[in-house]
């Protein structure tokens, strides 16, 4: 099943008189259960692409279909609604809410989805368990290391059982050990839950976890290969 389908997507940033063509006509389909890595040099459009898939942003032209639903033309609130049940995010910086404990950070998307207190408690503990952070549930982000924060962020991204988890350079600010740990956790969750992961990275140690690698350059897909070496035919 297609979780995301992008057709002829462009994204042009306009800052004053300067136009930057961040994406130049992208066609990309993400299937359910994929563990896909977007690679490419800095400035090649990885973040922009993730933001479009994640409905954080809208394309200048082209269409983005998420879970069978056309997203272009949705208003801000409709996009927020789509995100909250369908898409989880892990950011490069450790994007936890500083005033909330690890527990409360993971709980937030469940609150936004109107889950009952009992459901929330069960789900949060289950997830903190899965990322190995159950014993730090009541710590605030500033009491956690970068790796720990990122693991909590992964737990939060998964809280509502989203179809699609998008991670933008999730290991960029982590040392090798913590980076691998976070990747292991994501891989494990991918296998156990069947959730789809798409992550942007240019870290070769991370790319090795992927079963599909999409290479971007200058806003175009340069190469799209399965981990088994086979080129995908739809590009």
């Amino acid at each position: 099943m297609e979780v995301a389908k992008l057709t002829d997507v462009t994204r042009i940033y306009k800052v004053g008189q300067v136009e930057t063509r961040a994406l130049n006509g992208i066609n990309l389909t993400i299937e359910s259960g994929e563990f896909t890595s977007l690679v490419g040099p800095s400035g090649s459009g990885k973040t922009t692409l993730l933001q479009l898939i994640g409905c954080l942003d809208q394309p200048t032209s082209g269409s983005v279909v998420i879970n069978g639903k056309e997203t272009t033309g949705l208003n801000r609130n409709q996009r927020a609604d789509l995100r909250k049940g369908t898409i989880g995010f892990v950011f490069q910086f450790f994007a936890l809410i500083p005033t909330l404990t690890a527990y409360e950070n993971v709980e937030m998307p469940l609150l936004l989805n109107g889950k009952s207190a009992a459901e929330r408690r069960k789900r949060v503990m289950e997830l903190l368990e899965a990322v190995g952070m159950a014993d730090r549930a009541n710590n605030r982000p500033d009491q956690l290391s970068g790796g720990q924060q990122q693991r909590v962020a992964v737990a939060r991204a998964l809280a509502t059982n989203p179809k699609l988890i998008l991670a933008d350079e999730p290991t960029a600010n982590l040392d090798t050990e913590n980076g691998e740990q976070v990747m292991e956790i994501m891989k494990k969750l991918n296998k156990e839950t069947g959730a789809t992961f798409v992550f942007a990275t240019h870290d070769p140690r991370v790319i090795k976890y992927a079963n599909r690698v999409v290479t971007l350059q200058d806003g175009l897909i340069l190469k799209d290969s399965q981990a088994n070496g086979k080129q995908r035919g739809d590009q």
Binding site: L56, D81, K84, G85, F89, M108, L112
Partner: peptide, 8 residues
């Protein structure tokens, strides 16, 4: 972040 995780 709050908006990204679905806060309206």
């Amino acid at each position: 972040i709050l908006s990204a995780i679905g806060m309206k």
